[in-house]
Design a binder for these strands. Structure first.
Lengths: 95, 95
DNA sequence: AATGTGACTTTGTATCACAAAGTATTATGT
DNA sequence: ACATAATACTTTGTGATACAAAGTCACATT
């Protein structure tokens, strides 16, 4: 039973889950939905990028910058593995 | 979606799960099963005690000290709530 | 009394999350 | 062209945290 610290950390776990469930999502949508500060989001997303878990897309929409993020395949794989680890832990409670 | 840091931390999450599933467990069984050092176990269990999540029982068995731990009701409640939070996160992935 | 075992406690360190404030990029308005 | 505004970061500082390693303590047996 191993926990990947990158994925398990609460804020990032929610980021992974959000991106996994909702697909490509904008910076501001993430700060709004997860109720975290911009600095914090940038920091956590940065670590996910470094680990090749997240791909970034920057563009201008209606005259304003808009950055969107999505999970890479590797990010999806890591998250799925982590969810499985959690499910195993939960399933093991019945025994 | 809130994560209780006390419960979510990987080593303690496994401690909670182990005590929840197996009931009263000895110090040495915990270091063996979770593969953590004695110092580390003492430290994490200490935090769980402080939070009234764990009850301790010290005795001598066959001339050797043996400490056992079990979850308090409060500990069980906290863990169950946390598991539910995790399940909700996982269930939300389908949408 | 001396030794041994189990269960801690102490000490030190490196990492980390977070908040707050500062900065950079580009668009729009005048 | 210049100033301003909006988004998306980056920097700085701080307090908390996990962990390893080593030291200590209580009690029982010999």
């Amino acid at each position: 039973m191993e926990f990947d610290k990158l994925v398990h950390q609460p804020t990032r776990l929610q980021l992974f889950a959000h991106l996994y469930a909702n697909g490509e999502t904008s910076f501001s949508a993430l700060t709004d939905d997860l109720e975290i500060t911009e600095g914090n989001l940038a920091s956590h997303i940065g670590k996910m990028e470094e680990a090749d878990c997240v791909a970034v897309n920057k563009q201008f929409v209606d005259g304003s910058p808009q950055t969107t993020y999505r999970l890479t395949e590797h990010g999806e794989d890591l998250f799925e593995a982590h969810v499985q680890t959690l499910e195993e832990l939960i399933d093991g409670l019945d025994s």
